[in-house]
Design a protein around this nucleic acid. Structure first.
Lengths: 146, 146
DNA sequence: GTAACTGCAAAACTTTTGCAACCAG
DNA sequence: CTGGTTGCAAAAGTTTTGCAGTTAC
């Protein structure tokens, strides 16, 4: 594990600054929390709870502020599944989402961007360009004998 | 224009019944409203307002109930763009969505399902199958000279 | 010192719930 | 009749706002 210790996080600070974000105590703490370990899907509430558990003192409002700033900066991706169910995805690489509607489970599935052949053929207005593509595959248990 | 007149809607009634939905006054009226004319993206509020303007008396709750029932029955598609921004799409054919984040505008773009080559290669659990696929292409105005 | 940022409480929104009244078959 | 539907008001949930106080540089 890299040296993201007690008083560490110098690299995080640099990265934040490069994104035009002042490395405040709260932003550094959340950035470390969110970029450490496996990729995850977290609700704002999840992030708040985890932060508090980790001993980070910060307000709920601040969690929202920072999550949105991180999303705008490309550190996170926002995934809206249903109204009132927003996930922040720590995986910003090319992937699609598998949603099991029965359980509400969201799963990443890596894809080769080149396979999105279709997107190169979209006819857009001349002054428009593709900023991002979200693909959600809704899966269900096969019907039949239970 | 087909005969969807004052006291008409017999075909609508049949269609609703075929879907297992009792053709109540409210359901018939909304089904006519939503299946007439061009395809559109409507919020629950839009539908409520349009219905009232058209002289249909019904409750906000009922609009939600019916929109969800229609969605489950395949008469509509639900599109969630951001938390607190759900659209009901009257176009149930194969298409993707272009979202201009600046303006919040959502636009349909027809696609050939066969071009979704990628989806045939997804490795899913044996008891799972694809129920539906939502593709959202976020577009933005090209940066550069203003 | 100053602009950027945070924290708190309240507000704003959309969507859901519970239950009595109503209607279709 | 009888269960499926509707309507109303109230509740639930998430996300946003306004503004005073704090912090980064």
């Amino acid at each position: 594990m890299a040296s993201i210790g007690e008083h560490g996080g110098d690299d995080v600070r640099k990265r934040l600054r490069a994104l035009g974000l002042r490395p405040t105590r709260q932003r550094v703490a959340l950035a470390e929390l969110l970029t450490t370990g496996e990729h995850r899907h977290l609700s704002a509430e999840d992030v708040y709870a985890e932060a508090r558990n980790a001993g980070i003192r910060l307000a709920y409002t601040t969690v929202y502020n920072i999550l949105h700033q991180f999303t705008a900066a490309g550190l996170l991706r926002e995934v809206v599944v249903e109204p009132g169910r927003t996930w922040f995805d720590t995986n910003t690489g090319p992937h699609l989402h598998l949603l099991d509607e029965e359980s509400g489970t969201l799963q990443d599935y890596p894809i080769d961007p080149k396979s999105l052949h279709l997107l190169n053929e979209l006819t857009l207005d001349d002054d428009l360009e593709i900023a991002d593509v979200d693909i959600m595959v809704r899966v269900r248990r096969k019907p039949g004998r239970d």
